[in-house]
Amino acid sequence: MALIRCPSCNKRTSDKAKQCSHCDYVLAGRSKEELSREKERAQQRKKEKLLSQSMLALLIAIAAFAYIFLEQPHEDSWYAKISYSLLFLGLLWFLVNRVRLLMNKRER
């Protein structure tokens, strides 16, 4: 009995199993072509999820920057601290997701 990667969720499951124990994807009776197609779909879903998260992070960073630029809160106020924190976190989240997208592309 060997462990294989499920083409749908990419988690390890038994090669004797009829379906994946994690996502219930039916493995039995599938051709290699169907399995590879499902693997490509799973990778595409992951890419789309990472792109959505990147855009959300960028939106947060832009909104924080716009607030700082337009309102110009006093440096010691909690509004300014929250705005700077959101700007930093949004940009950091964006960069992390971009690196994850590059790593996802290399896996193919």
Rank of each mutant, 00 (worst) to 15 (best):
R98S: 04
S31G: 15
L59R: 08
E75N: 08
T13E: 08
E48L: 14
P7I: 07
P7L: 07
E107F: 04
W78N: 03
C20Y: 13
E40C: 01
L35I: 10
E75L: 12
R108L: 04
C6L: 13
S52L: 11
I68E: 15
Y67L: 11
R45H: 09
I60R: 05
A42S: 13
S83L: 10
P73Y: 00
A2L: 12
F88Y: 11
C6P: 06
L56R: 06
Q72C: 08
W78V: 05
S8V: 06
Q53L: 07
T13A: 10
V99W: 13
R98Y: 00
A28R: 11
A61W: 05
K47E: 15
I60K: 09
R41M: 12
K46T: 15
E75Q: 11
S54R: 04
L56H: 11
E71M: 10
H22A: 10
R12K: 12
S52M: 08
S83Y: 02
L91H: 04
L91I: 06
E38G: 01
K105R: 14
C23V: 08
R30S: 12
F65P: 00
H74P: 06
E71I: 09
K39V: 04
E107V: 06
E107S: 12
C6N: 06
E71T: 10
L87D: 01
K18V: 15
G90H: 05
V96N: 02
R98W: 00
A63G: 05
R5L: 05
R108S: 00
L91M: 10
P7V: 06
Y67C: 01
A63D: 10
Y84P: 00
Q72V: 08
K105H: 11
I4M: 07
K46A: 14
K11Y: 08
L59Y: 12
A2R: 13
R41A: 07
E75G: 04
E107G: 03
L86D: 15
T13V: 15
Q72K: 13
L102D: 06
K81L: 14
A80F: 03
D76F: 14
S83G: 15
H22M: 09
S77K: 03
C20W: 12
L3I: 13
W93N: 05
R5Q: 13
C6A: 14
N104V: 03
L86G: 07
S85M: 11
C6S: 13
Y84F: 14
S83K: 02
L35V: 04
K39T: 02
R12F: 07
E34K: 13
S77Y: 06
R12N: 08
L59D: 09
P73H: 00
E71S: 09
A57H: 02
T13M: 09
D24R: 09
L89V: 07
L70C: 07
F94T: 06
L35W: 00
D24A: 06
P73I: 01
S85G: 14
N10P: 00
A17S: 13
E33W: 00
L91F: 01
